[in-house]
């Protein structure tokens, strides 16, 4: 099976990284990461955006110069007037491609303009993908909770429709979004006076059960899996099923190395088992999972070596 046609996409940084870290991350990504597409911009909490807003355009430019396709991400949960205005501006600006994470974006999308659909829009079946394709969607990152039995028919349909089907392949999985900020709540603060405590946790704040099992991670208004999705062992099956792209979600640590491991796997230079071992060596404290795709649950850890 030739996997080399599969694309690698880097999703937006979902965490509240200090501006200098954010800037350095994209600089290194532009210069060193063997990826095709980069989606960037604030997706989780509009209160974070002002801190690194000024870095976005230069980062996008540097990525584009390095030959990467650049896409700006929209906010997942839009409620405030300034969030609506920001969404309208983002979509109206034709200078860059856009990935939508709220259906509201379609209100401002000029007819015929191509756009991407992020993993936080519910695309559970062929008809939904068809509707979005008619509206101009050219790439769809499927919801991370979809099992293989759903991914395969949707990806096959997308292939026929000329839409790039992408799948959540690496990183903590977004599980829920709320009006309430859980980072603030843990710190006995409210969302409106949050003091940006989420910036203390570069990969989210671990949530454990009362009997000390690792369970979830808090990222401001977002709740994520404690484990990291890792589909490096599933790539052949996904390629066979017409999946066109893998989404790698940024984390602290050597993320460029993560992208390199996936690229070498796509090139057939390393086996799935070797790729998995390398990812594990890179992040020895992380538990990996392909449970949403392969079952039985999203929390099911990957065993030693993927099949």
């Amino acid at each position: 099976m030739d996997m080399s046609a599969m694309k690698l996409t880097v999703g937006p940084v979902l965490f509240n990284w200090p501006a200098d870290r954010w800037r350095d991350f994209y600089a290194r990504l532009a210069d060193e990461a063997p990826v095709d597409r980069v989606v960037l911009g604030e997706t989780v909490c509009s209160k974070r955006a002002p801190f690194y807003e000024a870095c976005v355009a230069p980062a996008a430019e540097r990525l584009a110069r390095a030959g990467k396709e650049v896409v700006l991400s929209s906010l997942a949960l839009v409620t405030l007037p300034r969030e609506r205005a920001a969404l309208a501006d983002l979509v109206a600006n034709q200078d860059h491609a856009v990935e939508i994470n709220d259906i509201a974006a379609l209100r401002y999308m000029e007819a015929g303009r191509a756009f991407s659909v992020g993993p936080l829009v519910n695309v559970y079946n062929e008809s939904t993908l068809d509707f979005l394709a008619r509206k101009g969607a050219t790439a769809v990152c499927l919801p991370p909770e979809l099992p293989f039995a759903s991914v395969a028919p949707i990806a096959a349909f997308a292939r026929g429709r000329g839409v790039c089907a992408e799948i959540w392949a690496y990183g903590r999985t977004p599980l829920a979004i709320s009006g309430r900020c859980y980072h603030a709540r843990v710190h006995k603060l409210s969302k409106d006076s949050c003091q940006f405590v989420c910036e203390q946790d570069l990969d989210g704040l671990d949530v454990r059960t009362l009997d000390d099992m690792d369970f979830l991670a808090i990222n401001g208004v977002q709740t994520m899996s404690w484990n990291y999705a890792c589909l490096i062992g599933d790539i052949e099956a996904l390629a066979l099923a017409d999946v066109d792209a893998l989404r790698l979600s940024p984390h602290s640590g050597d993320f460029v190395a993560v992208t390199e491991i996936f690229r070498r796997r796509l090139n057939g230079e390393i086996s799935a088992a070797a790729g998995f071992e390398r990812l594990r060596a890179l992040q020895p404290d992380v538990e990996f999972s392909d449970g949403f795709l392969a079952g039985p649950t999203g929390a099911t850890p990957l065993g030693g070596v993927p099949a």
Binding site: L77, L120, E145, I177, L216, T223, S225, G298, A299
Partner: peptide
Amino acid sequence: MAEGRCSLSSY
């Protein structure tokens, strides 16, 4: 959580 946008149960 925002309804319809929550996978905690399936996790």
